[in-house]
């Protein structure tokens, strides 16, 4: 740390390097034009009641106030909270176990496993959704499997049942994100010096201790990255629920904020309220990223 600061000061002590801003300018222009301005514009629209066609009516922060009082948007944020567990917490937990196991067992065909685990990430979400829709269908693979092992009573229309639709979507999320987490963690474990593992093993520690003392602390950064990526993926879920459970799913049990935005902005002519939800998602994403970075950073120190 100290050494880097000295270096910075050495440069700053000379001419003011205003020319530096010039280098940033091209990227900054693109960023402002295509990210900051639209974001500001969205914020501005969220202060209106506007159908997208006729002249809007200024309503101040009413769209935000009603957002959480109203059933639709509130439920959508609740569902996305559940999805965050399926998209983020489960994949990271499973990924940690898988990566440690794969590392310990020194699997021969590791590259093969890695590729297979990562595959769901590469497939387009729409394809994933259509494929899983078939698996969860009344005569699909899940029900067939249940009937084969004598649990036919559990067979049901998974995506058409109010109590299981969100669960089904969540399982797909876990399936998609686990590969990403595992591959990240495998890379992280690979960087740990083999001597450390040897040392703990000499001390007579088993796998759980090894995991707690070496693997977990060393993977702080990777866990932070994995959590950030998967949580954001959960927050902006749209294609999966839109295709697997059309129109918000049975009894509206799988609506998510992104779906509400689409519905309001494009179909029911509530552009202002859609923009407000958009701003809320942005704020939540920002907060989550900030918190995760802080926590993961501290863990590492």
């Amino acid at each position: 740390m100290r050494c880097r600061r000295t270096w910075t000061r050495a440069v700053a002590a000379g001419e003011p390097r205003r020319i530096g801003y010039l280098y940033v300018l091209p990227a900054l222009t693109v960023y402002v034009l295509f990210l900051l301005l639209p974001l500001l514009h969205t914020g501005w629209l969220s202060l209106f009641e506007w159908d997208g066609l006729s002249v809007g009516r200024w309503v101040g922060f009413d769209n935000y106030r009603t957002m959480f009082a109203e059933q639709g948007a509130g439920a959508a944020f609740g569902h996305v909270a559940v999805l965050m567990v399926f998209f983020g917490v489960f994949p990271v937990s499973i990924g940690l176990v898988l990566a440690t196991a794969l590392h310990r067992a020194r699997v021969r065909a590791l590259p093969l496993f890695r590729t297979a685990l990562f595959l769901p990430q590469v497939i387009a979400m729409v394809v994933v959704a259509v494929a899983w829709q078939r698996i969860f269908a009344p005569d699909g693979a899940v029900n067939d499997a249940l009937r084969t092992i004598g649990l036919g009573g559990w067979a049901r229309a998974w995506l058409g049942d109010q109590s299981t639709a969100l669960l089904a979507v969540g399982i797909v999320g876990t399936w998609v994100q686990t590969g990403l987490a595992t591959v990240l963690f495998l890379g992280g474990i690979g960087k740990i010096s083999g001597e450390l593992f040897e040392a703990v093993r000499l001390d007579g520690a088993g796998a759980p201790t090894e995991f707690r003392v070496i693997v977990l602390p060393a993977l702080g950064g990777e866990i932070g990255v994995a959590l950030t990526l998967t949580m954001i993926a959960a927050l902006r879920t749209f294609d999966l629920v839109f295709i697997m459970t059309p129109l918000g799913g049975p009894g509206g049990s799988t609506t998510v904020p992104a779906y509400e935005i689409y519905q309001r902005a494009f179909l029911t002519g509530q552009v202002g309220s859609a923009a407000a939800i958009g701003v809320a998602i942005t704020a939540i994403a920002f907060t989550i990223t900030f918190l995760i970075t802080r926590l993961a950073g501290r863990e590492r120190a």
């Binding site: 402002v32 900051l36 301005l37 500001l40 514009h41 501005w44 629209l45 209106f48 506007w50 159908d51 997208g52 066609l53 006729s54 002249v55 809007g56 200024w58 552009v271």
Partner: peptide, 15 residues
């Protein structure tokens, strides 16, 4: 300046 650029009542240009 940015706010002024984006800040007109939505829909006013299509009316």
């Amino acid at each position: 300046a940015v706010l002024a650029a984006v800040a007109c009542t939505p829909g006013s240009d299509s009316a």
